[in-house]
């Protein structure tokens, strides 16, 4: 048995490593660097019904062990993503997880319906957690009832399993996760970025043109781990974990917290080869830890039956 095979709703993954949405575009740039078929899956950039230009620049700022971004969901719009980007991606043997965003319910539904019909799209990631858009996004991700209803509506039209991407900018993450579960979600992805700000000492004003932005990178790893640790014990949905992952050790830590797969975001900017490197390093680490398959690591931090898999019961 391959030690990295992982099976999740809609996703038979050759390994549980995938680039996180927004940190990999639609794959074209990274395809110049390595074979995308090596990846477990690809989470493509958020897609909205209409094209979006996004926010003014500067859109990024460095922080201690992290970065802020306020891209503002720039993307070429549903039609172009389906007719150009997804068609181009078909040449690779890698399942696509489509990140679906919008500012109102109808947008989400329209994008989910059309994009889920694409044969290369194996799952949707419902982005109810982008901190960088003025309308919509955030309310969907912070009010449980709204999140539940949206999940339900999207589930009704989607032809593939739906993973809901949770925002860490809430007081009770378990409540949000349960709302998604009640809405019929097939899985969760977590976490999106934390809202933050940096101020330029020369001008005295925020560095980002949008003023605030989403914090990502190693700085948010402990926040993500704690949230996954809590949610995975109270909700029976598989979790794709993310936040500051940059090594095989980080991946195991996420599995121990309760994740069943992981996504790598910011680290792609620092080392563009980070995903294939982690994939190459994982089997040895798993062997050293005494597991046959990485899934056995899921939930070890709270599971009293060591080495039993959370999802095989």
């Amino acid at each position: 048995m391959n030690s990295l095979n992982v099976s999740l709703p809609g996703l038979e993954l050759k390994n549980p490593i995938m680039p996180a949405s927004g940190c990999f575009g639609f794959g074209r740039e990274f395809s110049q660097l390595y074979d995308l078929s090596k990846l477990g899956a690809i989470m493509i950039k958020a897609t909205t019904l209409e094209p979006r230009f996004g926010n003014p620049t500067p859109r990024v700022a460095e922080t201690s062990a992290g970065m802020l971004n306020a891209i503002g969901l720039q993307n070429p719009g549903l039609d172009k993503v389906v007719n150009e980007e997804l068609v181009w991606l078909e040449q690779y043997d890698v399942p696509i997880i489509a990140n679906v965003a919008g500012s109102q319910e109808e947008d989400y539904i329209a994008v989910a319906r059309k994009i889920s019909a694409n044969r290369n799209v194996h799952a949707l990631e419902l982005n109810i957690s982008c901190p960088n858009v003025k309308t919509g996004g955030m309310a969907f991700g912070t009010i449980p009832e709204i999140a539940k209803n949206l999940t339900k509506k999207v589930k009704e039209v989607s032809e593939v399993p739906v993973y809901v991407k949770l925002s860490p900018n809430v007081t009770n993450i378990v409540e949000m996760a349960k709302a998604a579960e009640d809405g019929g979600a097939d899985g969760l992805t977590m976490i999106n970025t934390l809202v933050g700000m940096r101020i330029d000492l020369k001008t005295g004003k925020p560095i980002l043109a949008n003023k605030s932005g989403g914090l990502s990178g190693p700085a948010i790893k402990p926040v993500a781990l704690r949230m996954i640790y809590e949610v995975s014990q109270q909700v029976s949905l598989p979790i794709i974990g993310m936040g500051g992952i940059e090594s095989a050790e980080d991946v195991i830590e996420y599995f121990y917290a309760g994740a069943s797969a992981v996504a790598v975001g910011t680290a792609n900017f620092i080392d563009p080869f980070v995903c294939p490197k982690i994939i190459d390093e994982l089997p040895e680490l798993i062997g050293k830890l005494g597991y046959e398959n990485i899934s056995e690591c899921t939930g070890r931090s709270w599971n009293k039956f060591e080495k039993t898999s959370h999802y095989c019961s």
């Binding site: 575009g25 074209r28 950039k45 230009f53 996004g54 620049t57 500067p58 700022a61 891209i71 900017f269």
Partner: peptide, 16 residues
């Protein structure tokens, strides 16, 4: 322009 990835994947450095 301020950059993230530097290779075209993150949309940090976009102009009209």
């Amino acid at each position: 322009e301020r950059m993230g990835c530097g290779i075209g994947a993150c949309f940090a450095c976009v102009c009209h």
